[in-house]
Design a protein around this nucleic acid. Sequence first.
DNA 1: TTTAAATTTATAACGATTCTAAAGTAGAGT
DNA 2: ACTCTACTTTAGAATCGTTATAAATTTAAA
Lengths: 138, 138
Amino acid sequence: MSNNHIFIEKLRSSGLRPTKQRIKICKLLFDRKDTFHFTINDLSDSLRKITLDKISLATIYNTINAFKEKGYLKEISINSNKTYFDTNVSNHHHFFDENKKELIDLNDNDVGKIKIKKSLPGKKIKSIELLVKIANSN
Amino acid sequence: MSNNHIFIEKLRSSGLRPTKQRIKICKLLFDRKDTFHFTINDLSDSLRKITLDKISLATIYNTINAFKEKGYLKEISINSNKTYFDTNVSNHHHFFDENKKELIDLNDNDVGKIKIKKSLPGKKIKSIELLVKIANSN
DNA sequence: TTTAAATTTATAACGATTCTAAAGTAGAGT
DNA sequence: ACTCTACTTTAGAATCGTTATAAATTTAAA
């Protein structure tokens, strides 16, 4: 109950009405020490565990898309049937564990500086995304 | 008609029967000077243009998946509803033009060496994929 | 040629996501 | 507190890319 006002403010300040569904999702996503990765399905399961009155799947999609637009979430580029999101919106890269189907952050110290030497006229770089796929070594 | 025997051999040598559908797809994908990127939909359209007797969508999917397994095609990691394939199976990276929704190769000279300094016990790196998203600069 | 296994095919099924349109809610102005 | 309007939620339908199914066809080895 305690941190609700922070999320209410966050929502209001970005033009989103602080509904109880959005506040619950905020708390689940942002009221924690470490950032994490999730799919809509993960989130849906987690919400079902922490609240009795269920939040419609459509609302979950709506909310996550709104949060992505506002820059509170990042979508990770990966060729999967599901979309992966990251609550860490700073520039960083990822391992993708092909066995566990899970993302793991790579921070700045984990990856040497990436230099893009090519440029195209009339185009500018929007993002640089590195995905390092890993799997069990045996 | 000329290069069919090459593709027939290629298919046979990898345990795939050289059917006329597969040969047609081979010619479309591999009988050209430059490699390229495509989606199943692109491929389906192209096939419809070069041949009168249509190839079933199921066959196109089957064939592309078989070619991917055999290492003749690479699937590109990108968060899109469609899957992108590349006939260039060597290690390289990509620009993704968000306006045209198209991939552009980055060769070795276009990108500085990528160093991954982190490793996880029991896991080994399967691939390193860099995607640089670009868009119109105005 | 015969035959078994591989392949193609149309269509159904599937799963993630988006759309729809009706019911409910928030918040500004009375 | 009440009204009004725009925003939000919701269940369920629709969509779209992809995969599964099962019957018909084709390949290639004997």
